[in-house]
Design a protein around this nucleic acid. Structure first.
Lengths: 294, 294
DNA sequence: GCAAAAGTGTTTATGATACACCCATGA
DNA sequence: TCATGGGTGTATCATAAACACTTTTGC
């Protein structure tokens, strides 16, 4: 299906797709050796050891491009839209098809559509989502030659404008961590205050006073004491908390995508600050693009 | 151009368009009489009188649908995408084609794409922008039978999910006014602190202590004394300020759309808080939707 | 001088930060 | 009992809110 000529192509609508920035907490330094082609560390973040000092950097999975342009470069996982799927479902599907990960958080980031970004190919509008994956969510994940995890601060050159997109996702995460619960989504369902504290420090470089952090978080009421205590290490056991939003039942599931080993229903929009949570579980509708054809 | 059958249509990509929520400051009560069909007040907000008490509500223009579904209902201005235009340009074009308004602020709001919203017609993804129009910007604007201004709090029934979209835009405005300069974009290029104060009160219902407001705004450094004073009324003249961002020259114009009586270059993204301002004037790229086809 | 709006001062409450200190546990 | 991280107390500082007060103009 080709376009007739340049001017027809220019006035035609662009292609549309979905991409996802997936973020997870990983070790500060890779434990496995460097890779053959000189790329920076790249084993997947190990989610299951209790070693605090080594769990303090954000990692994200990228896929290698197998087509021009940017053949061989790393890019964000993505996929197409389908008329019978919500954008979130499409994002989820894109995410799943490349990484088999089940996010604990998924939110729309931004829609990129500048003609310049197409780099000579078909113009493309990308609706980008960002996702947070908790610890333990990566159990079934296998890295291949075309999918690999990278630490956020040592990314390889990325295709298209994907580098800026990643940067924007990180900016959003860093901003959102200050007034919402997103940090908890990078951990498992339960965690200690120290673990949560480490997430905060990992996300925005600077050190956070642990004593004040404790008070602030506890005062915010977003955590709930599970009644349990850690039983590791040789120190005083720490209280184990859980994110308290289970109290506030979802009005409606953000999307009905359900399957896989981890329940997709655990994926939520931010209930506090993302106004869409309140507005979006909205009612059906249809909007043909004929509004300005009065 | 029809689709073959239902399942083909379902797996096909949806249509894509752009819509805009346009907001401007208007009088609290309409000065002209009610409309024939019983709709709520609807003359366009008068931007040019100095009557404070009457300048305290948000208004927005809607267009009447001339097709099914929702024929005759009011809807957001919108239009199509073109491969050779940025999303902002498309938003600007949509805005212009229906209202001839020149916004002082334009920012992407959200992309809506739930299949349910299509109400039985062709599935539609809407990339929605919101715009703020300052006083005096509406000079050349003419209302027709198919375009009309409504006060934000007495909207008629809207087509599709446009009501939720408007609500979300208002939520974003109310949130953003607290940590950015958007409020100034609803006024003219210069204004008194009292006027700005009134905008704040108009936007989020509650009263704001004028003394504290004055200190806070002034301390934020976002305003600049023009050196001029008001010379109206029979009271002490007020200092006239201007938004101080002219100091901080734009790195690059958000988009190159230039034309019409008001310079489109005055449309800016929020320079402080919208991280995209820093990231988006980014470099070209192209992203075909083939990422997950490894 | 008086009304009306502009603009300043001052007190109080609230929250963030820094950091000293005590507690519970395993070895 | 000591090392280690868990957890609390408290003084200090910055900011927000409340509101009394002074200033400048036109009439």
């Amino acid at each position: 299906m080709g376009f007739g000529n340049v001017s027809e192509r220019r006035s035609a609508p662009p292609q549309v797709g979905v991409s996802v920035v997936i973020l997870a907490l990983g070790p500060k330094h890779s434990q496995i050796s460097q890779n053959s082609d000189g790329d920076v560390p790249l084993n997947k973040p190990d989610m299951n050891n209790g070693d605090r000092s080594d769990r303090s950097r954000l990692w994200l999975p990228l896929v290698r491009r197998v087509k021009q342009p940017f053949l061989g470069d790393w890019a964000l996982p993505g996929g197409g839209l389908r008329a019978d799927r919500s954008l979130e479902q499409s994002a989820f599907a894109a995410l799943e098809s490349t990484t088999a990960l089940h996010p604990r958080y998924l939110e729309q980031l931004y829609t990129f559509g500048d003609p310049e970004r197409s780099h000579g190919g078909l113009p493309m509008v990308s609706i980008v989502y960002w996702a947070l994956v908790g610890q333990g969510e990566t159990a079934g994940f296998e890295e291949g030659d075309n999918v690999r995890w990278f630490p956020e601060d040592t990314l390889p050159p990325l295709a298209f404008d994907h580098r800026e997109i990643v940067d924007y996702a990180l900016t959003r995460l860093r901003s959102k961590i200050e007034y919402s619960d997103v940090a908890t989504r990078l951990l498992g369902p339960t965690f200690t205050l120290r673990q949560l504290h480490d997430v905060y420090e990992a996300i925005d470089g600077k050190l956070v006073d642990l004593a004040n952090f404790r008070r602030k978080i506890l005062a915010s009421g977003m955590l709930e004491d599970t009644g349990e205590k850690t039983r590791e290490g040789r120190q005083r056991p720490a209280t184990i908390y859980r994110y308290a939003s289970e109290r506030t039942p979802r009005i409606s599931a953000p999307y009905a995508f359900d399957g896989g080993e981890v329940n997709a229903a655990t994926v939520e929009r931010d209930p506090v600050d993302d106004a869409l949570s309140a507005l979006m579980p909205s009612r059906p509708e249809r909007r043909r693009h004929a509004e300005h054809a009065q």
